[in-house]
């Protein structure tokens, strides 16, 4: 009885009793959800255009952030370092396409998946060899990102919104709008979508597979850089960040592997729900730290009812 009460009654009573705290929790969840969604977005882009399940996306986030900070530490001004990092991400995209993907075209999915894990390990080793393994400070101020906070007082309570987080949400929103516009209204974007629909048909109307793959990996790299700056200014930059790479997987599955909407909705949903669960159920009842598995169990539960994810394309199987 006591247990049922703790599960079904007390948390909701707590929520109603302190609405400002609830809002704070939801906001925190939203912010991390936006970052999950951004990583998932990189995954979705690559998956749609090449059917490659790119495990390296999460590490690209860390690698991009590390390159940015590393270049700045070498005495390069912040904005030129950003340009330099973009250059590095382009070189990475080109190298990956040339060295890894091209020889592996047409191999089974799991082989390509393993290849991206190989890329992941390489990037971890490479990044740490060049820039060192210790935790670094993101160059927030140098990039002109405001660092103060808004203090709101809803319901006579207290709600603190960090400027960094607000900026992250706004930039992420702009990025998504830009991406959707790119995919829908430009020649290149249409080529990306065509490639996603049918490789052979796309090739036969003269779309270059290689160019599009480099492009898509580069866009994923740009998204990775934005995510890296946003996440890095909250938690510092080191390869300990790779844990968020794993978080993007349930986001992706929950939303559906092909869907941009799915990545965003999935990210926000998981971000908010895992925070709520941790604060109101996990910490008091289960001893805390439930964030490590909640997203996975949630995604698994949803998949049991919708095997293609919330927004994924319906899977039709024929013999």
């Amino acid at each position: 009885m006591e247990l049922l009460r703790n599960i079904f009654v007390t948390p909701f009573v707590d929520m109603v009793a302190a609405p400002d705290f609830l809002m704070q929790v939801v906001w925190e969840g939203l912010v991390s959800g936006v970052l999950y969604a951004l990583i998932a977005l990189g995954f979705v882009l690559i998956f749609r255009s090449s059917r490659i399940f790119n495990f390296a996306q999460g590490i690209m986030v860390v690698f991009a952030a590390l390159t940015l900070v590393g270049l700045h530490e070498m005495g390069i001004p912040a904005w030129i370092a950003v340009a330099g990092t973009l250059g590095v991400m382009f070189a990475l995209a080109w190298t990956v396409e040339r060295v890894v993907l091209r020889p592996l075209v047409g191999q089974p999915d799991i082989i390509l998946f393993m290849a991206t894990i190989g890329i992941t390990l390489f990037l971890i080793g490479f990044g740490e060899t060049i820039f060192g393994g210790e935790n670094k400070q993101m160059i927030t101020a140098e990039l002109g990102i405001p660092t103060g906070d808004f203090v709101l007082e809803p319901f006579g309570g207290l709600l603190i919104l960090q400027h960094i987080d607000v900026t992250a949400v706004v930039v992420a929103g702009l990025l998504v709008v830009g991406l959707v516009a790119f995919l829908n209204y430009t020649r290149m974007g249409r080529a990306v979508r065509a490639l996603g629909d049918d490789h052979q048909a796309a090739l036969s109307v003269g779309i270059s597979l290689q160019t599009i793959w480099v492009l898509v990996w580069f866009i994923a790299g740009v998204i990775a850089l934005v995510t890296g700056i946003a996440w890095g200014s909250r938690a510092g930059v080191s390869f300990a960040l790779e844990i968020i790479a794993y978080k993007a997987l349930p986001v992706l599955m929950l939303g559906g592997l092909e869907s941009i909407t799915g990545a965003i909705v999935g990210g926000l949903l998981i971000g908010v729900l895992e925070k709520l669960f941790e604060i109101y159920w996990g910490a008091p009842l289960l001893g805390g730290n439930t964030e490590s598995w909640f997203a996975f169990v949630l995604a698994l539960t949803v998949l049991l009812f919708r095997p293609q994810g919330l927004f994924g394309e319906k899977i039709i199987e024929r013999v």
Partner: peptide, 27 residues
Amino acid sequence: PSLRIKGFYLAIATLAAQFFLIWLFEK
């Protein structure tokens, strides 16, 4: 879940096992 979920989506079931069990070993 493998009876219903296939391919890469199935990876989520074993990932859930991975993270949940490690948490359980700790707690």
